[in-house]
Structure formats: C-alpha cells, structure tokens
Simulated assay, not measured.
Amino acid sequence: MTFTADEDRLGFFGPESVTWRVHTDPSFSVGGLRALLLQALHPVAMDGVARNSAAREDPWPRLVRTAAYVDTLTFGTRTDALRAVGRVRGLHHRLGVDDPELLRWVHCCEVDSLLSCARRAGVPLTDDDADRYVAEQRTAASLIGAAEAPATVAALGAYFSRMRPVLAATPAARDAARLVLRPPMPTWVRFLTPARPAWGGLAALAFASLPPWARRMYSMPGLGVTDAAATAGLRAFRQAVLPLPQRVRRSPIVWAGYERVAAPLSA
C-alpha cells in the first residue's frame, strides 16, 4: 500500500471524518464495553477468545491493547495503523479467529455499539452522519480482513437481524460478561481507590445500552433497565465527563493525532 506523506500524516480517517467525532466523545468508553458484551454472544467467535486463558485470567491487558489498537487505527499515521493491523492479524491467526465472517461480526458489533452509544448520549449526529460513519468504518473492516461490511445504518441493522438465530449466551459468553462487569482487580485497588464502583457503573451502563434482545439472552438478574433509563444514563455520563480537560479525556495516541494534523500540510 502506497500513499503520500500528507496521506500518511492524516491517517485513514482524518479530523474531518465522523469517525474522529465519535471516537473522541466520552461515550466511546461505554460503547467499547458494549461491543465486548455483544461480540461474546457469537458462540464460534467466543470460543476462540475463551481458548486464550491469559485473557480470561487477566482481562486488563486485552482491554488496553484493544483500546490502543482502535486509537492507533483512528488517529495514528497510516504507517502506524498498518503496523498495528499486522500485529492484530497475527494474533487472530494464532488464536484461530481470523475467519472473515467472524471478523465481520466483531467489526459490526464495534461499529453498532460506538455509534449507538454516541447518538443516545447526545452527540449531534444526523442520519447522514450516521451512515457516513458506518461507511467510513468499512476501511477498518477491510484492513483487518473482515468480510464485506455494511455500508449504511440500515444495512447494519439488517445484518444483526440475520445473525440473531445463531447467537446465544453460552457459558463462555456469560463468563466474558462477568469479566467485563466485575473484572479482577488488585486488593489495594478495590479497597483504596474508587476504581471498583467507577468501573461497575460504567460496565452496568454498557450492559443497559445493549439491544433488548441481547439483554434478554444474558438474563442477568439485577441489571434490567428500560431503554429510556439507559439513554438518560448515557447522557448524564457524557455531561459529567465533557467538562474534564481534554488531556485527561484523550489518550496520548489521540492527542498526538490532533497535534500532528494541526501542522501545515506539505506544499
């Protein structure tokens, strides 16, 4: 893949994209957890993850790597993004989860979750913006080796309708959900910091934002909530986080992307 120096610096999306708007919003963190919960409902895809004992015993490295990958693909240079894609594709091959159809499932769960949470949290996105986001994310799907991804919100919804008969909350899916909702933490973190309740609130909000059919599959007691309450919670979370300094809200990868594109383009 060849590209100019300016194309490399702007990355695969750039600051004018809907992708940058969605991926810099506070709702992104909730959407990322929602995606993990949704992805786990595919028995075959979940089987590959379940075979990775390290991810089961200590999910934090996987969560950190996933967040760094999405940040790099979105805000990094094209060179950095392709390097990250190569590492992830190698990992997928080792785990036996490099089937294009399974990768499309993972991709669609991520796109649906990030877009749904952003819109429900109050990010100003028109229907055209939403379609543009789904279309932009086809680049991410192509890079990772996923089968042809939906290009519109309607096509994305139709994809999930087709997939529902094969989905199930298997024991592996329930184990994965429990790791998302209550991940293991060092004792000092649990008792000497607010990490446990803070994470619990974030994860519960992610679960509440799942489609009703997905929540019914999990059938987890105590986590039942109406769609209206979930939307209100997303809006409240976003409004609470937005006043924080941007250097606190944005990862170093995201911040570096903004600084890099602020420089003048080549003549």
Results as ranks from 00 to 15, higher is better:
Ala35Leu: 01
Leu37Tyr: 03
Ala40Glu: 09
His42Pro: 00
Pro43Thr: 11
Pro43Leu: 12
Val44Leu: 15
Val44Thr: 13
Val44Lys: 14
Met46Ala: 15
Gly48Ser: 11
Gly48Ile: 02
Val49Ser: 14
Val49Asn: 10
Ala50Thr: 06
Ala50Trp: 12
Ala50Val: 02
Arg51Asn: 14
Ala54Phe: 07
Ala54Met: 07
Ala54Thr: 10
Ala55His: 08
Arg56Lys: 11
Asp58Met: 09
Asp58Thr: 06
Pro59Phe: 02
Trp60Glu: 10
Pro61Leu: 10
Thr66Ser: 03
Thr66Cys: 00
Ala67Cys: 01
Ala67Asp: 04
Ala67Pro: 02
Ala68Phe: 05
Asp71Phe: 05
Thr72Pro: 00
Thr74Ala: 14
Gly76Ile: 05
Gly76Thr: 05
Gly76Gln: 12
Thr79Asp: 14
Thr79Ile: 06
Ala81Thr: 01
Ala81Tyr: 01
Arg83Gly: 11
Arg83Gln: 13
Ala84Met: 14
Ala84Lys: 13
Ala84Leu: 07
Ala84Phe: 05
Gly86Val: 05
Gly86Gln: 09
Gly86Lys: 10
Leu91Arg: 13
His92Trp: 06
His92Met: 04
His93Ala: 15
Leu95Ala: 13
Val97Arg: 14
Val97Trp: 11
Asp98Leu: 07
Asp98Arg: 09
Asp99Arg: 14
Pro100Val: 05
Pro100Gln: 11
Glu101Gln: 08
Trp105Leu: 02
Val106Asn: 11
Val106Gly: 15
Val106Asp: 12
His107Ser: 09
Cys109Met: 08
Glu110Thr: 09
Asp112Met: 05
Asp112Val: 00
Leu114Phe: 12
Leu114His: 15
Leu114Pro: 03
Leu115Cys: 02
Leu115Gly: 05
Cys117Phe: 09
Ala118Phe: 10
Ala118Asp: 12
Arg120Ala: 15
Val123Met: 08
Leu125Cys: 03
Thr126Gln: 13
Asp127Phe: 03
Asp129Cys: 00
Ala130Pro: 04
Arg132Gly: 13
Tyr133Glu: 10
Arg138Met: 00
Thr139Leu: 14
Ala140Tyr: 09
Ala141His: 04
Ser142Asp: 13
Leu143Asp: 10
Leu143Arg: 04
Ile144Asp: 03
Ile144Trp: 01
Gly145Ile: 00
Ala147Arg: 14
Ala147His: 09
Glu148Ile: 01
Thr152Ser: 15
Thr152Gln: 12
Ala154Pro: 01
Ala154Val: 06
Ala155Thr: 00
Leu156Thr: 05
Leu156Met: 13
Ala158Met: 07
Tyr159Asp: 06
Phe160Thr: 04
Ser161Met: 08
Arg162Met: 10
Met163Ile: 00
Pro165Asp: 13
Pro165Gln: 07
Pro165Val: 08
Leu167Phe: 08
Thr170Met: 00
Pro171Cys: 01
Pro171Asp: 02
Arg174Ser: 01
Arg174His: 02
Asp175Leu: 15
